[in-house]
Design a protein around this nucleic acid. Sequence first.
DNA 1: CGGGCTATTGAGCCGTGTCAAAGCCGGTGG
DNA 2: CCACCGGCTTTGACACGGCTCAATAGCCCG
Lengths: 247, 247
Amino acid sequence: MYTHSCSNCAMSDLCLPLGLSKQEVQKLEEIVQTTAVKHVGDKIVRQGDKFDKLYAIKSGMCKAYRFDESGVEYVQSFHLPGEIFGLDAIYAKHYGFSVEALDTTVLCELDYRQLQNLCSEIPALQHQLFNLLSRDLYSSHVNPIEHFDQSAEQKLAGFVHNLLTRFQARGHNSLEMQLPMSRRDIANHLGLAPETISRLLKRFQNNEVLAIDNRIVSVLDVGKLQSLVHCHALEARITRRQVSKAG
Amino acid sequence: MYTHSCSNCAMSDLCLPLGLSKQEVQKLEEIVQTTAVKHVGDKIVRQGDKFDKLYAIKSGMCKAYRFDESGVEYVQSFHLPGEIFGLDAIYAKHYGFSVEALDTTVLCELDYRQLQNLCSEIPALQHQLFNLLSRDLYSSHVNPIEHFDQSAEQKLAGFVHNLLTRFQARGHNSLEMQLPMSRRDIANHLGLAPETISRLLKRFQNNEVLAIDNRIVSVLDVGKLQSLVHCHALEARITRRQVSKAG
DNA sequence: CGGGCTATTGAGCCGTGTCAAAGCCGGTGG
DNA sequence: CCACCGGCTTTGACACGGCTCAATAGCCCG
């Protein structure tokens, strides 16, 4: 199996070239383009635009968001290096979400039509793409349902912990993180009020779980943070989300 | 283009055989098995079981649910005829959700390995499967984020309206529906308390939106129901979910 | 007819949203 | 270099939706 050179994918078992022969990887690379650098606020795709490309983040951070029919904004996700977006637009033929850079960001562009043709030629590539779609589907099934039954504290702790884990998986071996998004974006993403985010961050600071300097967050106690994510899980909410009796 | 015979897929533009030649459909049918009938409470797959098959519902209704690490149950979805489940297990290699019949249910089984091989042979089938995955991904991106910012009333109204729409898309042209799931399942699915479901259903009854007889629900006023889904969208929650200023 | 599960109804409380005001930071222009 | 401005963030006071707990009623099945 060919070990490819895409440094950002080092931590992922789902980078597209995985499992491909040297020759096949070359074919894949022929249809990949690296875009110019994007800066804070630059839009990469706009909700409603015609779908033609998938994007993979090489460095930086992006936020994906949409406006519903009533003009209300929803921040769906924050994307880190190694992650691919646009997959949810294949069927609809139009992007369902706008994506913009929160930071200086470099991307790969993949023409979907070409990729699809290549998948017919290279079974291993088809296999990888099915896996990629399936993994995204799984996490978007598991994450939201667990979230929307949690307290604000659990949600925010989960959010910070999730980011930390993802940063660490990318080789960022420090407990300090730059969160380039606004409090309002975080609040929106978690379905909370911005004021609640402020109050909780302060509480986490008081409890010596986090240290916060504007948009720089340092995790002081990973264990405490983790326990905050699961804490209420057994005390409350057991009526709605019934605890298992059988196996 | 071959018009296939799967009556349940009549309303769907995503039934797998779509776009395939007669010959290709035949190949597909060779790897499809129809299971024995399942009855109320019968499990079709169990969370944690090794993944090997996808399932398509021919008739009946199922619920998909999982227990998290703390043993808390989450009802993820209710599946109707024409819908496929198991896609989110491709990557993980194990089912992430248990699925059980809520009703007398007939299913198709598709061996994934065989299907994947067939996709390499038949580009149109690969194309259909990418579309199917993408559509599921899209809806699991859009639905939950809009839900988890809604009032209990909006959630339940949305749930009923969604079911009605899906029943009607399947040719059920009546405003009366059998909801085979318990109040507890509905509550869990929506992230609410069962008591809240009871109270809201009564309120809908008082407002002459629904008529309820145990698990049989009749929609008396589709317009009112629809307006309940969107009602609070502009009054409240505008701080968190900011209303668009630009285009 | 009794047992057990499901559903309903009521009373009270807590978390989180809303509103309003003040503080902070970065950028711009005089 | 400093003053001003607008957006983001924080803080406080208050209200209310929906959860909890507890009791009652209905339904299915033996």
